[in-house]
Design a protein around this nucleic acid. Structure first.
Length: 355
DNA sequence: AAAGCGGGGGC
DNA sequence: GCCCCAGCTTT
């Protein structure tokens, strides 16, 4: 038996029961693939269920306000995915009359759909014989054939794409592709792989040479950036203020409390004498009646030290629209999509009975 | 070709 | 603490 036959047989016996494997409409496949980009299945599962329930087809998604889509996405990370999902839904619903593009090349033109996702949708939903390459496939193939080329380089990706195409079963590309990924997810794990349960143990070069832990090869390390975020939870009776993030920084399109950022850790007296503080409050009286709470928030490329100040004011911030601030009652807070760290602070306030 | 983009879980 | 997860977009 060839590799493709072996993994197909294994897949039919051992595959997980996942919701997107039931209804194979391109819409369902698409939603699942976007959610699962750089995201573990267990983490994306409930998001997928909620998404399909609220937006059963591309029409409902296209007609939804972007802020609602982002709210549903809250906590999942990589929020560009949600914005592109919405954008592409509108393109399909309104420009393509609800017709999903049916080929790899056409899918690739859509926002948020790159080589992996185009191959996944084309092969799974339309049975087009294209091989997909994701993190699982990198790992399985690098071990199977002892590929020394780093997976995180241009040249490396090309090697793996060619290899994946070579072993593809063109008759059942959907089964083949999913079987290869499932093998990576369940057996050929990054650490402590379950080689004794692997159907390809006789085919695996790395296993034969006892070099499993040496693959896949990666070239680079990423460096971290440290930032200090001073968040101002402003309490004006039952109201507070939010700000919508824009630009190319993290959390684009999400909401947060008014923020004063600095490169170094900032003491309160420094903060309250800063220009940003003055721009918000002027010389008016503020009462900071809570010791600030500081959380460390770890992102892939950044470490954020977020300090939250609870500030009571006896006035309404004027020209707040000019500063990009929106004034909202407390009980509307849950309507806004916010970063996890903001959500955690709000939860904390609830637990302390602050509302 | 490299950097930037979240958050969580396993070890 | 480090690594990785059904990657894509921008520079």
């Amino acid at each position: 038996m060839g590799i493709s036959e072996i993994i197909a047989k294994w897949y039919h016996e051992k595959k997980r029961d996942l919701p997107w494997r039931k209804a194979e409409t391109p819409y369902h496949i698409w939603i699942s693939e976007i959610i699962l980009q750089q995201t573990r299945v267990v983490q994306g599962l409930e998001y997928y269920n909620r998404f399909i329930e609220k937006y059963p087809s591309v029409i409902e998604l296209a007609n939804a306000p972007l802020d609602d889509v982002l709210k549903l996405w809250q906590g999942l990370g990589y929020y560009t995915r949600a914005r592109n999902l919405h954008l592409t839904a509108q393109k399909i619903a309104f420009e393509l009359k609800g017709q999903f593009p049916r080929t790899y090349q056409e899918l690739l033109k859509l926002k948020g759909i790159g080589p992996y996702t185009a191959a996944a949708i084309a092969s799974i939903a339309f049975k087009e014989p294209v091989a997909l390459v994701d993190g699982n496939v990198f790992r399985v193939l690098s071990r199977l054939f002892c590929i020394q080329m780093p997976v995180d380089t241009k040249a490396g990706k090309q090697i793996f794409e060619k290899l994946a195409a070579d072993i593809l079963d063109p008759v059942k590309p959907d089964i083949h592709n999913q079987a290869l990924m499932e093998l990576g997810a369940l057996i050929c794990l990054p650490k402590n792989p379950a080689c004794s349960n692997c159907p390809l143990i006789r085919n695996c070069k790395a296993h034969a040479e006892k070099k499993i832990e040496l693959f896949p090869v990666k070239s680079g390390k990423i460096k971290q950036r440290i930032r200090y975020y001073n968040y101002l939870f402003i309490r004006d009776r039952d109201y507070t203020y939010l700000h919508k993030r824009t630009g190319k920084d993290i959390w684009n399109s999400l909401y947060e409390f008014p923020l004063i950022e600095s490169d170094v850790s900032m003491k309160f007296h420094k903060l309250s004498s800063s220009q940003e503080w003055f721009a918000l409050f002027g010389d008016r009286k503020t009462q900071v009646d809570r010791y600030p709470k500081t959380y460390k928030h770890q992102l892939t490329h950044q470490i954020l030290y977020c300090t939250f100040y609870y500030i009571e004011v006896g006035f309404t911030l004027d020209s707040s629209t000019d500063k990009g601030l929106i004034r909202i009652p407390f009980n509307h807070l849950s309507r806004y999509a916010v970063p996890r760290i903001i959500e955690k602070y709000i939860d904390n306030l609830h637990q302390e009975g602050m509302f």
